[in-house]
Amino acid sequence: MKTILSLFFLIVLSSSGQQTMPSTETPSAKQKETDACCPATTQNVAENITAESLYNLTSEWKDQFNTTRTLLSLKDRIQVLTMGYTTCQYACPRLFADMRTIEDKLDPQIQDKVSFVFVSIDPARDTPERLAQYTKENEIEDKNWTLLTGDEESVQELAVLLGIQFRKLNETDFAHSNLITVLNQEGEIIHRQPGLLSDPTATILSINRIVD
């Protein structure tokens, strides 16, 4: 049995493990018009978005001010992003604390280049009002924090791109990966900090490196 399994993973790895190179071809504007389907996964031809940018997603979200926005609105600043849900009792407060730690440890000169994003995996209960309340509870009402809630499809899609697993356990709780992701100004993933109470040094370094 074990042999079959190891062999099997080898097959999976060899056929899918290669990372892709950015494509040099860009779709034309005409093609965009013909797209009848797939609202979320659309390429923003006009916006000059890089091939690896998460901002190629065109899903719509609401923030804590009840403003509708796309992920593209996060462009041009470095974003430190995580996914969770505000009523989580166990890990999310610690995950949030890890985000605050990163914020606190940033060099003051670059703090205005970095923003923080919390994306909810619980659209049913994390309404914009609830997100606003959460910013108050956590004293993060300043402009550097964006809290987003979207429909289930959009959440699933973003989670897949970030490599975040989550599963609804019951009416009130989710199991989910604890992962903090750093996006550069273009929306490309440049660093991942997995786990809780992780040492943020590497994350801070990754941010410093792209500010220079």
Binding site: Y90, G163, Q165
Partner: peptide, 28 residues
């Protein structure tokens, strides 16, 4: 929801799952 399995793929019983990587990871 292929990404929701919470199985790391490394160990058969998955007891080696690092709980700090997952909120409520022990439940799955």
């Amino acid at each position: 929801d292929f990404n929701n399995a919470m199985v790391t793929g490394e160990s058969r019983g998955d007891s080696g799952l690092d709980r700090n990587l997952f909120c409520a990871g022990g439940a799955v």
